[in-house]
Amino acid sequence: ALSHAPASAPSNPSHFMKGAIIQLATGELKRVEDLQTQDFVRSAEVSGGLKIDSSMVVDIRASQQKPGLVSLHFTVGEQQSKVTIDVPPEHPFFVFGQGWSSCSPERTAQLYDLACHPLQVGDVCVSITLQQQP
């Protein structure tokens, strides 16, 4: 039996665990490690309310406010908006054409058993935002 897990993420989000079942907007089910860029793009198209943005990593540094976390600086979408988020180094991001990537692939593998590339400045990550209503 399949049960729909809440989207909100606990401290160690289990949806990044290797083998986790992900439901795309098309209804298709895929394992997290098998996802491709096109799966996200297609799901955003089908969902109607969400839009995929290209978010380029422009800076990675240790977080000043929260020890142990890293501050990721992005330029987001066509407007190149500046956005900064603080995340654990093992948090995976999906990079266009590359796949799962994180600031600490070793820790990501330990925690989630999910193979990751090193996340680097210049990588373009998949992010989402609300579709602008006309």
Binding site: A20, L35, I128
Partner: peptide, 25 residues
């Protein structure tokens, strides 16, 4: 009498960050 084990299914959008401009410092 086997108890069915439910497998959690996560929505696709829970995997990617929601980056809206208002989040910048």
């Amino acid at each position: 009498n086997v108890e069915p084990r439910s497998v959690p299914v996560f929505p696709w959008h829970s995997l990617v960050p929601f980056l809206a401009p208002t989040q910048s410092d």
